[in-house]
Amino acid sequence: MALYSEIVMDHFTHPRNVGVIEDADGVGQVGNAKCGDIMKIYLKIEKDIIVDVKFETFGCGSAIASSSMATEMIKGKPISEALQLTNKAVAEALDGLPAHKLHCSVLAEEAIKSALKDYYDRNGIAYDKSQFPDCDNCVHCHG
């Protein structure tokens, strides 16, 4: 049996939305190099809709696949919907991840939330802080 599902391998080898948005409206980065994974998400937002999204990831196959899938899941969606995206939904959309790789999907969720938080902060929009994880203290890494 292969380590990863076909969907994971597809997103890993043909990642969607890789790159940078130079004039992004929100940017979020989570993880650190010491732990072996960093995800960075760039958002372009118009009238509360995520009109474009790009990512860069330093990490293993499932980290790259999780970023790719998560960006696909929020592209073209309203912010309110993107905020509802859970790591579980990302993992399910990937047809599952091995148990020790589930933190990659957590990282994807946190990266998106962090980018949305940045968008709110930049635009002085009030928000419920409890909706956003403290990403300086990511659960998966105690490095």
């Binding site: 080898t13 072996g36 330093f58 990490g59 293993c60 196959g61």
Partner: peptide
């Protein structure tokens, strides 16, 4: 520098 080994192994395997 700048990359992670598992991803490297998977791509090399391909």
């Amino acid at each position: 520098e700048g990359i992670e080994g598992e991803a490297l192994l998977l791509l090399l395997d391909m």
